[in-house]
């Protein structure tokens, strides 16, 4: 078992009544799964993903990640946990505009205090694997959307995460670019990486082995 959510609730206090963002979420994810989360806007997809990624907290319930009880960890320990095991991919790529492709890839390794030689090797490896060696000295603004997301995925992968969380990874891409990214995910999954993605598209959701539907914060 990679992670498990038990009776997770999340709400915000509005003027009188609490507004529920997540209601009684129960979810088990095994290693090697490829899960798609679907649902209409505002149904809590991104919130769920953020909770899983430990970028956001929750109000009630339990969350175990690789036998650690996330809900009882301090923020710093939580941060260490997700840094170690989770890679994020965003709809808007969120590459740093001031850094070249190569430097964007290198950044997570710097934070992990990976030695310079190994850093170079892993970055080169990743550039090679994604066939973007020729782009390594370009800045994000000089790339197409598909290429930027490619870098985004590469950056998520470079720390060897157990889990990749992707929030509408193809939302800003045209269909051909989107397909390429989804193929890439599939291939990664086959190599053993666990993937949870949020998507609007039935077609993309079909890449996953399991689909979770959300409505008003509740799994249906």
């Amino acid at each position: 078992m990679l992670l498990e959510l038990k009776n997770v609730f999340k709400w915000v206090q509005s003027s009188s009544n609490p507004v529920f963002l997540l209601k009684d979420i129960n979810l088990q994810v095994r290693e090697g799964e490829f899960i798609s989360i679907m649902g209409p806007s505002g149904s809590g997809k991104s919130t769920l993903l953020n909770v899983i990624g430990m970028l956001d907290g929750f109000n009630e319930g339990e969350y175990n990640f690789m036998h650690e009880s996330v809900h009882s960890l301090k923020e710093k320990q939580r941060a260490n946990l997700y840094k170690e095991y989770i890679g994020f991919v965003f709809q808007a790529y969120h590459l740093l505009d001031d850094l070249t492709v190569e430097e964007n890839l290198e950044m997570p390794l710097l934070y992990k205090k990976v030695k310079s030689g190994e850093r170079k090797a892993r970055v080169a490896d990743m550039l090679d694997r994604f066939r973007i060696v020729g782009k390594k000295d370009l800045f994000p603004a000089q790339l197409s959307g598909g290429q930027q997301q490619l870098v985004g995925v590469a950056r998520a992968l470079i720390g060897n995460p157990k889990l990749i969380l992707a929030d509408e990874p193809t939302g800003n891409l045209n269909s051909k670019q989107g397909e390429e990214i989804m193929d890439l995910f599939k291939q990664l999954n086959e190599e053993g990486v666990t993937i949870i993605q949020v998507t609007h598209s039935e077609k993309n959701a079909a890449y996953g082995q399991r689909i979770i539907n959300l409505l008003d914060g509740r799994m249906v």
């Binding site: 941060a79 969120h94 740093l96 950044m107 997570p108 934070y111």
Partner: peptide
């Protein structure tokens, strides 16, 4: 802000 967010997500600590 975005830069801070991205850096944190890819593993930067507050200290860094």
């Amino acid at each position: 802000a975005k830069e801070v967010g991205v850096r944190k997500v890819v593993g930067s600590s507050k200290r860094y």
